[in-house]
Design a protein around this nucleic acid. Structure first.
Lengths: 345, 345
DNA sequence: GTGAAAGCGCTAACAG
DNA sequence: CTGTTAGCGCTTTCAC
């Protein structure tokens, strides 16, 4: 004898009553409920999730889909761990469990998602690394699976999303660099079709135009989101006939390689070239400290969770005011990598 | 009508036959099987996991348990992402799915694990960040849940484990530094009770003793496994009356902060102090390049998966030769941070 | 080679 | 307030 049946037998009451007692149904004698809860604790009883899911059609699991190839997302363990921590803080209130759904780099993300959904694995989903055109979005929307994306996409099915404020970062970076005397400003973009790259480049272009400047196509550097990518950017940049005097780096990790390649060439950030990037734990520890845009990843996770829950019928009442779409502000942390520029010559 | 029933109706055969056809049972007419598979593909049928689990008592899911607080694990940016990718490469062969079980920093890991197990969530588990005494190990062993740990522990239930060769790293580092003229050698250890810290410190002590040297307790620096921890170590170290001439860093991430604090004090790695650390993508991009110990994280993941599967009755036949316990070699990458030491005075 | 039917553990509807 | 029972989707006997 196993499971709820065993518990019921142990208490000499019916399994129905045990179930109701455990699930906090009102029509249970308080004394009975107390006995059930105590016995459950003693016997270490926890309801079998498969049985429960099969009956209720819900799993109490929220899946956070991510790709495991390191060069794909551009985010590392730390980024996601921090976000997860915030997400969980919210889910814990509702006894929802967060699991990371790990799509191998060898599998097509859409196929993977299809499998996850068909299996009835999760009650809701969080998608990260949204692509410019992202078939996953349509797929989930068609099936009425509650989900939220971390990142926007041209694929719009009216889904809720949260995204970092890359426009704000672009605008502020360009304005700041221009104000500091720069006219020839480079930017970077991801090597793949992740949506944020488009947003960032577009806004940089417009911000420059507002200052009467054009974005030189040769000053848009594509790179993989890692140290090696940053290194390569610096090498390419220094090889130009007329290098830029400033650059805005879109990824966190590329700063290290970028600094190193400059250093090898005897070029010093802050003195010979202005650099603005994204905050990461090592940004402070570069020399000179990187001027960068920071955000609270944990708070982002919290917002992500609340937005998702507000899209789920079972929880929406708890989060009536959660915004369905939102760009997440980043805060400028002043470093020493982009001082005012000494007038040339 | 849903699920397998719908598929059966569509084909006008019984659900039993559909099930057998889909699951590759031998007693099915090949023509029938072909029709079933085709219809399944057309209708996008995927068996419901809850129904299947309930019936079979197995989920085809392997859980990789990890803690989500960022200061906990002590691994670099992309440590887990890379390991996951290797694990999945193996699991894909057996149609097993890997999910990361994310224990919030606010929850006790043992409680979390208990819940996961009781729910029948996964067929097997991988535990990371094993503590010196780790109750999770006993818990799983008692219940006969197949699992493998990434990391050893004093808690020994005969479980399979894989661990990095911290002894080898300790021994090689000490030998190398001594050979290069160092007598006063510092080491670092994690701030918490993770098991690897004990292994590392013990072996360093013995390696030094073999050279007739004592490990000075003041030269064992505890730190959180992040940039700030490394920064603090360097500050503390430089404040000593008699600073060490060399140091071995146990974590990947601390090198950056460590280098920075040295730099601020005008102390140059490789010239004024020898440094040996762990490889991470930025190790090359430090100046001077860090001499460090590297391993293939993806291969580690593959080995981890194979070791787990060899402990699972359903798969053990495929992996007869997988070692149940194994320290994973790391390879020394020569940088320029620990040259031969100019004799003093 | 196929169909019919039992039953995995659980919750919810219903009867008392 | 409690017991009884149907049935969630699936796999696996057991007949035929």
């Amino acid at each position: 004898m196993k499971g709820i049946r065993r518990l019921a037998q142990h208490l000499d009451i019916s399994i129905g009553t045990v179930s109701r007692a455990l699930n906090g149904k009102p029509d249970v004698n308080e004394e009975t409920r107390r006995r059930v809860l105590q016995a459950a604790a003693e016997l270490g009883y926890v309801p079998n999730q498969s049985g429960r899911s099969l009956r209720q059609g819900t799993t109490n699991i929220i899946g956070f889909m991510m790709q495991t190839g390191t060069e794909i997302t551009g985010q590392g363990d730390i980024f996601f761990m921090s976000v997860f921590d915030g997400v969980q803080a919210v889910f814990a209130r509702h006894k929802l469990d967060l699991v990371a759904l790990l799509c191998s780099s060898e599998e097509d993300p859409s196929d993977y998602l299809r499998r996850v959904v068909a299996r009835g694995f999760a009650d809701g989903l969080i998608l990260s690394a949204t692509q410019r055109d992202d078939p996953r979005i349509e797929f989930l929307a068609e099936r009425n699976i509650p989900f939220v994306t971390l990142g926007r996409s041209l694929t719009d099915a009216g889904q809720p999303w949260l995204d970092l404020d890359f426009e704000g970062m672009a605008q502020a970076s360009i304005d700041r660099l221009v104000a500091r005397g720069h006219r020839r400003i480079a930017i970077t973009r991801p090597h793949d079709d992740i949506n944020l790259g488009y947003i960032f480049v577009d806004r940089c272009r417009r911000a420059l135009a507002a200052h009467g400047l054009a974005l030189d196509e040769d000053l848009i550097f594509r790179s993989t989101p890692n140290e090696a990518g940053g290194y390569q950017i610096a090498r390419d940049l220094l090889a130009l006939d007329e290098p830029p005097t400033a650059i805005v780096l879109i990824n966190e990790t590329i700063a290290i390689g970028f600094y190193q390649a400059l250093s090898e060439a005897g070029v010093k950030p802050g003195r010979d070239i202005a650099v603005i990037g994204r905050y990461s734990p090592h940004a402070h520890f570069l020399s000179p400290p990187l001027t960068c845009f920071r955000l609270s990843l944990r708070d982002l996770g919290i917002a992500l969770a609340e937005t998702l829950l507000s899209a789920m019928p079972a929880f929406k009442d708890h989060y009536p005011q959660a915004p369905a779409n939102r760009v997440w502000q980043m805060e400028l942390v002043e470093g020493e990598s982009d001082p005012f520029r000494a007038p040339r010559r």
